[in-house]
Amino acid sequence: MNLFRLLGDLSHLASIFILLHKIQTTRSCRGISFKTQALYVTVFVARYLDLFYRYVSLYNSVMKLFFIASSVYILYLMKYKYRPTNDPSIDTFRIEYLLGPCVLLSLIFNYKFSVTEVLWSFSIFLESVAILPQLFMLQRTGEAETITTHYLAALGVYRALYIPNWIYRYITEDGVVDPIAVTAGLVQTGLYIDFFYVYFTKVLQGQKFELPA
């Protein structure tokens, strides 16, 4: 564990609390992509199956359980408690275009051709693109509530902090890297660049998040 990774994980935790806060205070999941949230549940369940056979640390196990539980809870809120505020007609990204390639990639690129390893690879590839339905929705509506942009920013910061974490590990662990995690992680961080541009130039200057028409 190093400071970059710890801050990254805390930023990931913060993003979830911001999202829960947004849904509960506005009593609405308007502007949140159900598809992206469902993909995150898929990612966490596929990856954290290792809770059953690998113990890393108490921190690691607690975080994994929290990510699974909170993502399922968010789906519940969107699908049941605040269902009327969820508008599927603007959440139109075709997720089969993400799932198909991720299945294929995980069958080709994995560290061992076993069920758990292929699922691990699949979860890494899927996480890297899981935000796309959300970004697509943002692009379509052209605007977002400020709190929703804080949620996305915290998620983006989490991914961005994993990059210095890998550089730090590369230096301190004798030039060792995890090629699947790093490649997918770089792609994932890249997806946030456009969003961050608008976030820093508008939202953090006190303006509303609006995309140019």
Binding site: D9, N60, Y162
Partner: peptide, 10 residues
């Protein structure tokens, strides 16, 4: 120098 699998990461 080489590849490793970082299964300790979340």
């Amino acid at each position: 120098m080489g590849w490793d699998i970082w299964k300790d990461e979340l």
